[in-house]
Amino acid sequence: MTTISAIRGRCQQTTRRLHALGWLPNLVLRVSIGFMFASGAVGKLADLAAFTRLFEQLGVPQASWAAPVVALIELVGGLGLMAGAATRLSALALAAIMIGATLTAVAPPLHDKYPTTWDFLSNLFYSPEWLLACLLAWLVCAGAGKASVDALVSRRIATSQHTGHRSP
Rank of each mutant, 00 (worst) to 15 (best):
D112S: 14
Q57E: 15
G145L: 10
V31P: 01
L72W: 05
S127K: 02
F37P: 02
P168S: 09
S39R: 03
S160N: 11
A85Q: 01
A50Q: 10
C134R: 13
S122H: 14
L48R: 05
A6T: 10
A67Q: 04
L29N: 12
R30A: 06
A93Y: 05
S90V: 04
M98R: 00
L94K: 05
T116F: 06
A66I: 07
F51N: 03
I97L: 13
E129T: 11
G34Y: 01
S5T: 12
G143W: 04
S148G: 10
L29A: 14
F51S: 06
W138C: 14
F51K: 00
L27T: 11
L94A: 06
A95Y: 03
V106N: 08
V69Y: 00
T117V: 15
C134P: 08
T102Q: 14
L48W: 05
P109S: 02
R30V: 07
A133N: 02
R156A: 13
G77M: 04
F125H: 11
F51A: 09
A38Y: 00
S122Q: 15
P109D: 00
N26L: 15
G78S: 02
A101P: 04
I33D: 01
R166H: 15
R53L: 13
V70A: 14
C134L: 15
L24W: 10
M98Q: 03
L81R: 03
A95E: 01
R88K: 01
D112C: 08
L27N: 08
P25W: 08
V42Q: 14
S32T: 15
P68T: 02
G77H: 05
W118S: 15
A20N: 05
L152K: 14
A49L: 13
A142V: 07
G84C: 00
Y114D: 04
L79Y: 03
A105W: 04
Q62C: 12
L24N: 08
T2K: 12
C11A: 15
M1H: 12
V60A: 08
K113S: 11
K44L: 04
F125R: 10
F125T: 14
T102K: 11
V76I: 10
A91E: 06
E129Y: 07
L27A: 10
G145Q: 11
S39V: 03
F35G: 12
R17M: 08
V31N: 03
A158D: 01
S160V: 06
I97H: 10
R166C: 12
V28S: 11
G77A: 01
Q12D: 11
L131R: 12
A38G: 05
L75M: 06
P108S: 06
L131S: 13
V76Y: 00
L121V: 15
A147Y: 12
T3G: 12
G34K: 02
Q57P: 10
Q57K: 15
K113F: 07
A142L: 06
